[in-house]
């Protein structure tokens, strides 16, 4: 079974789950992704194949960077261009200065109301399902932090900006909030994710380009964790998930291998290492 990570550049119009399914067929192994992108959005999608799906929680993705296009003067129900137009007005012309100042007011920590058309769970149901059924509900504001923001271009009526936001923050809501602070309405006409943690769009391949060679081995992708080659005795323990005494390992997590085959990932607990997840299939 193939295991490892893929850095994919998602194209517009395709759902993330569809991408997973297509790769699942291509590689005949389970596939999952980290951080869903809306159908209309493009850019960096981090995908895990096979055993690597178990390592998704270990990936540092506290901050993500996006490039967005906000069209002012037109509001849609989904806050993006896939939605129905619900309001139109003549948006004022802004000076670049006004826009930059408005963007700067979002720096730091704040509360954000997620879009109604989002995958948030409300009493066990998805928010977007409830909206479609016409059921009223309240979305709780979430805590977000914006670390960096930049005005890239302003060509009336479109504002292009780049933003680095904490995990869980919605750029559709941010776009809506920016429009509100400019005393107008608006929606996103494009959204591209260019960074997740330290991973960059430059490293990504399109869905058509992805081959088996594009799959990055687990221990190379998570290069902050060392890989320790085990003795035969240790290997037999590791296969069963037993504790290991590993000397000279300073990091909190480490991969363990036998004959260069990844067996598991271990984590430090006091002076002993415990199995975090087994990554080994006897058939290999």
């Amino acid at each position: 079974m193939i295991s490892g990570f893929i850095l994919l550049d998602k194209n517009q119009g395709m759902g993330c789950r569809k991408i997973d399914n297509s790769l699942q067929k291509r590689f005949k192994t389970k596939v999952g992704h980290l951080g869903t992108l809306d159908n209309f959005a493009t850019g960096l999608l981090l995908i895990a194949c096979g055993e690597a799906t178990k390592l998704l929680p270990l990936i540092k993705e506290d901050y993500k960077t996006y490039i967005a296009k906000l069209k002012v003067g037109v509001a849609t129900d989904t806050l993006d261009l896939d939605g129905k137009i619900i309001e139109e007005q003549q948006a004022p012309h802004f000076s670049k200065d006004t826009i930059v100042q408005t963007l700067s007011s979002f720096l730091g920590k704040s509360k954000q109301i997620p879009p109604a058309y989002s995958a948030k769970w409300i009493n066990g149901r998805r928010a977007f399902d409830l909206v479609r059924e016409g059921i009223d509900f309240d979305l709780k504001p979430i805590d977000i932090e914006i670390k960096e923001i930049e005005l890239l271009e302003y060509k009336y009526p479109t504002i292009d900006f780049r933003v680095t936001i904490s995990r869980g923050g919605y750029i559709r809501s941010l776009g809506n909030d920016i429009a509100t602070r400019l005393n107008t309405i608006g929606h996103l006409t494009s959204l591209r994710r260019i960074k997740v943690g330290t991973y960059d769009i430059e490293q990504c391949k399109s869905l058509d380009e992805v081959t088996e060679q594009s799959i990055i081995p687990m221990n190379i992708f998570l290069k902050e964790y060392p890989t320790i080659e085990l003795s035969e005795v240790q290997f037999k323990k590791a296969v069963n998930g037993a504790y290991l005494r590993l000397d000279n390992v300073t990091s909190d997590y480490c991969f363990v291998s036998y004959n260069s085959q990844i067996i598991a990932i271990y984590f430090k607990s006091d002076d002993i290492f415990k199995c975090y997840r087994g990554l080994y299939h006897a058939s290999v």
Partner: peptide, 11 residues
């Protein structure tokens, strides 16, 4: 305050 460096704004 906030700072602008290379057009990017930071708190």
């Amino acid at each position: 305050t906030h700072v602008k460096f290379n057009n990017t704004l930071y708190l």
